[in-house]
Amino acid sequence: MTIRNEYKQLKKENDLIFSTLAECDRDTITGIVNTINNTRGINYEVELVRKDLIAMAASAEADGQYLPAVIGDVDAFKRDLLASMPQPKLIDYMLDSLVWLCLFGLAVSLTHLLLGGPWDCYYDAAMLGICIVVMMPSAWLLQRLVPSAWLTADKGGLYGAAQAAVLVVWFVLFILLYRWVYPALPNIGVPNVIATALFAVITLVLRGWRTRRYNQLADARPWRDVVDTKKQ
């Protein structure tokens, strides 16, 4: 399977071209991308949108214009862009987050393997379970249900309040985990060698699956119509 447009490479290319744009275009793109990023959990999707906006700004500057003049009403453009993008799917949100969690688990287990110290893997497993069962789905649900109007400049505080409420729930859950669940867990851990191998295999499998989803997304890019309309 060809790994096309991987997130890090795409971001590196975007950053290179982004640095050559005029300051007002950089500020406009940053504002639009931040709005999209607040309601989309998939970094790769956001970076694809950023790539199209950068190309749009570069084309405008080549014609002696700036991006705000081409876009017009920036808030209206944000709403149209968000409406054109597919709602985040739970599977994609979980894949994106699980890859990072497994990489963290791999780093921790490998560190303990090299240092020869014990690892409270049963506690980490409980925290990972809460992340999978509670944190990721609730964050995805918040992003899926939030109205686009909450993300505009005049109502941005509503979305911030919703995020704060979710964070409070997470904080309470972690306190309960530490005070009640952790002491009751059996003092049994997976050997470091097995844990390292397990996290390595799971990470490779998840990255391969995520890459496949990335490639499907790169082929679709449904927001292109909104961008192309403004170019005309």
Score class of each variant (00 low, 15 high):
101 L>T: 10
206 L>K: 07
152 T>C: 07
139 A>H: 08
227 V>N: 06
101 L>W: 14
159 Y>L: 06
178 Y>F: 15
220 A>E: 05
96 D>N: 04
35 T>Y: 02
106 L>D: 02
118 P>I: 05
46 V>I: 13
60 A>L: 02
24 C>F: 04
26 R>F: 12
152 T>L: 09
225 D>Y: 08
171 F>Y: 15
190 V>P: 01
232 Q>F: 06
164 A>G: 14
101 L>S: 08
217 L>F: 14
173 L>W: 06
126 A>G: 09
2 T>Y: 10
169 V>R: 06
182 Y>G: 12
169 V>S: 10
120 D>E: 12
122 Y>A: 13
145 L>C: 04
149 A>I: 09
103 L>C: 00
144 R>A: 14
141 L>R: 11
25 D>L: 07
166 V>E: 02
226 V>Y: 01
228 D>R: 09
182 Y>E: 15
177 L>R: 06
148 S>Y: 09
226 V>M: 06
59 S>F: 11
67 L>V: 04
160 G>T: 07
62 A>M: 07
207 R>H: 09
139 A>W: 08
27 D>P: 02
67 L>S: 03
205 V>T: 05
38 N>Q: 13
136 M>V: 15
98 L>W: 03
133 V>P: 02
101 L>A: 14
134 V>D: 05
133 V>L: 15
204 L>M: 10
178 Y>R: 14
167 L>W: 09
14 N>S: 04
210 R>F: 15
63 D>S: 09
160 G>P: 00
52 D>V: 03
152 T>K: 08
146 V>H: 05
56 M>D: 05
119 W>Q: 05
31 G>L: 13
200 A>C: 09
201 V>G: 09
149 A>F: 07
33 V>L: 06
68 P>K: 14
215 N>P: 02
68 P>H: 06
30 T>E: 15
159 Y>M: 05
19 S>K: 14
90 L>D: 08
101 L>I: 12
141 L>F: 10
150 W>K: 04
45 E>G: 03
87 Q>Y: 04
68 P>Q: 07
140 W>D: 07
82 L>S: 04
133 V>A: 13
232 Q>A: 12
53 L>M: 10
101 L>R: 14
38 N>I: 02
192 N>K: 07
14 N>T: 04
145 L>D: 01
123 Y>K: 12
148 S>Q: 03
150 W>G: 03
55 A>C: 07
128 L>T: 09
180 W>L: 15
7 Y>I: 08
81 L>V: 01
23 E>N: 15
172 V>T: 15
80 D>W: 03
200 A>Q: 03
28 T>G: 07
148 S>T: 04
131 C>F: 12
130 I>T: 11
73 D>F: 08
162 A>Y: 11
161 A>Q: 07
51 K>A: 07
9 Q>C: 01
220 A>P: 00
26 R>D: 11
13 E>A: 10
61 E>S: 05
119 W>S: 03
53 L>I: 09
149 A>K: 13
21 L>K: 00
222 P>M: 04
52 D>R: 00
2 T>S: 12
16 L>E: 12
30 T>D: 14
137 P>L: 08
195 A>V: 02
3 I>V: 13
216 Q>S: 12
132 I>H: 01
23 E>Q: 14
88 P>S: 07
129 G>K: 05
178 Y>P: 08
108 V>N: 01
204 L>K: 05
139 A>I: 08
118 P>S: 05
163 Q>A: 15
138 S>D: 08
3 I>Q: 14
47 E>V: 01
151 L>C: 05
198 L>M: 03
